[in-house]
Design a protein around this nucleic acid. Structure first.
Lengths: 338, 338
DNA sequence: AATTTTTCTGAAAACGCTTTCAAAGTTGGA
DNA sequence: TCCAACTTTGAAAGCGTTTTCAGAAAAATT
């Protein structure tokens, strides 16, 4: 436990025991096929017996890139990104990569600092969330000199590769659904649209599609709240109710907001959906469990993780794939709340 | 973007521009005080102008340890660990450390593999969740030859340092509370007690304290469910109701289970707490928002992250602190559900 | 049997920093 | 003025791999 106790087994130790050179051990371990059957056996046995574990730091210095992949998300406590990260980890870990995870809380300046820090690790790739970045981030990303993948968005111009879905379209699904269900006076409750461009895009989508689908006869109000938590949903409901007369339905930029509003409606004796319809976004586990279960839009949160990981894997083998765009789809999940 | 475009600025470039040696640049950057005022200025200007960013890989190879800290949690999608990770990241990032995050889904064999993988990065410290580890994990941890911190538990014997709270005690809070509130026939719904030793410890705590506080007159049943999600809570409610006659209260190993049960109770027309009291664990954001709000036990989830980070920081400066134990407290949050 | 290919293997040069050790330069006291 | 003590700087030796290049051995060809 205490540092400096015993000397770690090095590749040269394995080489000595196996009676071969360092170079051969390296090859045998990295490209087993490139070494004769017999040596491979001897080397693997020696490595096993000595309990050799390669020093990744040394390997990364000698190689062109490290098997590190930097991933930057807005937040770790957000179930969306957590799912994406989990899936990415699983796929990439299996190929010997290790994730370097950073989060910036929707602060673009912090994003830039994290990218710079990651670049110092000479990563095999860097993944960032969204398409909105500061000049500094873009500069740091290009200085990192490795594949860059943007994810979770599709509404904009990527720097390099892109894996995501259209948040505008996600909003449009909800807006269209509400119009078709006959709700012509609606509100959209959106959390920090100034800081979260994807939430803002969804809100815009709802508004647009609702206007189109009602032939302009519908009325819709945009209401912003200062957070993504349940409490803000309750607050949003309150605001919407006071600001919009004859309100029939509310779309939210996230399921937690919608659930918070659902609870608040219950407290106020407002029946959902009879008096007021509620539509969320996210299809979190809770959405299917509330009373009534929540109508929502499901983003491909796990799929993004897998797709990003797979893209990176393919890309590292075949650099021609730079600039690839992977489009994933959103799904309208109609339940009873609206 | 494409690999191999331009040469990265090296420390030797800075040295050349500043007209000093490599060694001096290294010193100036790492220990500004150890270099004369004038040189420091020249070197910093040069570094700035060239846009020098240190190569962490090279630095780590030359130094004794890398500024990487490995952290292993059961799951990233679990709000408890996500909060801990967020706090750890913030504190450690400020000191120039970078987290290597791994998750094993309560699978001890995977934990061992992750520890081994982390050890290859020569990390400054490794943090693992809980006190239950396989022989292989313990071996890999000791081979890593760096400080080890176990977190989130206190019921057992640590390998080295420990930052956590007693899950048994957390359970005891709930059990005692239920007994005092006059609920003598209770059930404990616990998710995968065979795989999650902390959940099992909490369940045990509830049972013990309830038996003590009711003077043995109380009856309590342990019911296990196969997951931590809302749906399992509903299932747990159902099982408890059929298995325990005259059931008055249920304690859950997690808030999501409790909320799921609350929803299910609502569907069945069971009044909470009049017909049945519900107690959770976790004090997730949702706990204070449900109808009725959930009585629960609050673990120090953010505090653990901060405390672990601070411990590591102190420890790296002062190796004598090995074996330190930081005890944090749990809090009973009484609301309306039980 | 003598060559030419092809397959394996090892020596040695990076990779970009940290750190030790000694030399050079400064300061202050005798 | 000279020497001791201290401060500041630079040369060079790693850190543990990967990878290139060339030589040795084995296989295939004439």
């Amino acid at each position: 436990m205490a540092a400096g106790t015993k000397r770690r087994v090095r590749m040269s130790d394995v080489a000595q025991v196996a009676g071969v050179s360092l170079a051969t051990v390296s090859r045998a371990l990295r490209f087993p096929e490139s070494v004769s059957q017999e040596l491979r056996g001897r080397i693997e046995t020696a490595a096993q017996r000595l309990g050799y574990a390669p020093n990744r730091i040394a390997g990364s210095l000698a190689g062109a890139h490290s098997p590190l992949i930097g991933v930057i998300v807005p937040s770790l406590t957000n179930a969306f990104f957590a799912t994406t990260l989990e899936r990415m980890t699983v796929t990439l870990e299996a190929e010997g990569f290790q994730l370097l995870i950073g989060h910036h809380g929707y602060d673009l300046a912090r994003e830039a600092r994290i990218v710079s820090a990651f670049a110092g690790w000479n990563p095999a790739a860097i993944v960032v969330t969204g398409l909105d970045h500061s000049r500094e981030t873009v500069a740091a990303l290009s200085a990192a000199d490795c594949p860059v993948v943007e994810m979770w968005d599709l509404d904009g111009h990527p720097l390099d590769a892109l894996v995501g879905f259209s948040n505008t379209e996600a909003g449009r699904f909800a807006g269209r659904h509400m119009a078709r269900a006959g709700y012509d006076r609606i509100a959209v409750v959106c959390s920090t649209p100034d800081k979260d461009p994807r939430a803002a895009a969804r809100a815009r989508g709802v508004l647009e599609a609702h206007a189109e689908a009602t032939g302009g006869r519908g009325k819709a109000a945009l209401i912003s709240v200062d957070g993504r938590e349940l409490g803000c949903g309750a607050l949003g409901l309150d605001k919407a109710l006071t600001e919009v007369p004859d309100l029939r339905a509310i779309a939210f930029s996230g399921d937690m907001l919608a659930v918070g509003a659902l609870f608040e409606a219950d407290r106020r004796g407002i029946r959902v959906p009879e008096d007021l319809a509620l539509v969320g976004y996210g299809d979190l586990d809770i959405a299917s469990n509330t009373n009534p279960p929540l109508t929502t839009v499901r983003p491909p949160r796990g799929e993004i993780g897998t797709a990003v990981a797979e893209h990176i894997l393919k890309r590292l083998k075949d650099p021609d794939r730079s600039g690839e765009i992977v489009t994933l789809n959103v799904e309208m999940v109609v339940r009873d709340s609206g």
